[in-house]
Design a protein around this nucleic acid. Structure first.
Lengths: 197, 197
DNA sequence: TTACACATACCGACTGGTTAGTCTGGGCCG
DNA sequence: CGGCCCAGACTAACCAGTCGGTATGTGTAA
């Protein structure tokens, strides 16, 4: 019991969300029919619309989950008691590991924003912005302390790093030569090296 | 005459492609109906299916155009007669400028790969791979000469940089504070700084 | 303990609307 | 007059969401 598979065991809402996540990542939001989702979860449309208001709602749930997890993790690293280089390195590497461990979520996150309804899209953007600014604050702190170069605006540095995170779902393969932690260390290293004064 | 707008002047196939590019970028491939495309181009379905085999074909044309342009530009920079740092910096900055100047193409390129038919997808991936490898060769050349750090595998460095290029369509706004060239210089700079030995 | 009331959880046929692609025919140009 | 170019009605398929219905459980009062 307490299985995490979609077929059985777990409560119906979780099964639906798990099935939707996988299918949205594999086929895209528009290409995935509600019928496919309920079949993968082993229920029918009645169950889905009992727990979720719409197909769009299901997508929004995926976003909410990702945002919550990433925000919690960033909070942890930015409030750590350590030099700013270590805090930034920790946060930068952690987001890579977390992203790789949930590649389906990442795929959906960056590819399906425009499928959300306007108001949900706005809400997601706002939370995303908060996250971005908190990350930027770390870089600015280091720049003010003089341990990071000020050659590049902090905003651009954040976008540079998150570009590579975003890109992970395009090229990373679990059966490739690098473990998630190795990729994370390399990418954090590139960021920190680029920031050397 | 020889207008580049979608409504009139230019030959019908170009008008269709221009309309499709804009609409695919704005609304996504699946959310754009063939009817919308032909209306934006000022023709009817008969015209579209006279020149293109399918809606999918139209998308493939966008990919073919982007790949051709980017490959030509990379060829130019990699065969330049200059130190490898300059060739890499030139290529890295140029792809940023070109991408910003064709943000619609970039948006479609990275967001709609999975909408291509399997064989067209395979073809696009193959061409993309060739591009990636040529870019990687530049980095490896610098690493062998000792002017670039070997701390990170060249493959990963390429993905790091193209992640940021990919990401441009998400955050860059033409009415923002930075010109395309300024963004390009910053991003190329970050890459080169990360590669300092 | 039994009987009834009510809610939660789910089923699955159905509807109204949309879509990619086809096809027949017409006009224009060489 | 024949072939390229295109119009626009048509079709077959599909899809999100609805709705009436059923089953199971829980609380309550006789």
């Amino acid at each position: 019991m307490a299985r995490t598979t979609e077929g059985d065991g777990a409560p119906v809402p979780q099964r639906l969300l798990a099935a939707a996540t996988r299918l949205f990542a594999e086929q895209g939001y528009d290409r995935t029919s509600v019928q496919e989702i309920v079949e993968a979860a082993g229920v029918t449309k009645g169950a889905l619309y009992h727990y979720f208001g719409s197909k769009d709602d299901l997508l929004h749930e995926v976003y909410a989950r990702v945002l919550r997890v990433q925000q919690e993790r960033l909070d942890h690293f930015s409030t750590m008691d350590a030099p700013v280089e270590q805090r930034l390195r920790g946060a930068a590497a952690d987001v890579v590991v977390t992203t790789i461990e949930n590649l389906d979520d990442a795929m959906i996150f960056f590819r399906s924003m425009h499928h959300l309804s306007p108001e949900k899209n706005k809400q997601v953007r706002a939370e995303r912005r908060r996250y971005h600014e908190q990350f930027r604050a770390l870089i600015e702190e280091g720049q003010q302390e003089g341990v990071f170069s000020t050659a590049t605006p902090a905003d651009l540095v954040v976008d540079y790093h998150f570009g590579s995170v975003h890109h992970l779902s395009t090229w990373y393969r679990p059966d490739g030569p690098l473990t998630p932690q190795q990729v994370a260390d390399h990418l954090a290293d590139l960021l920190l090296r680029a920031l050397r004064p």
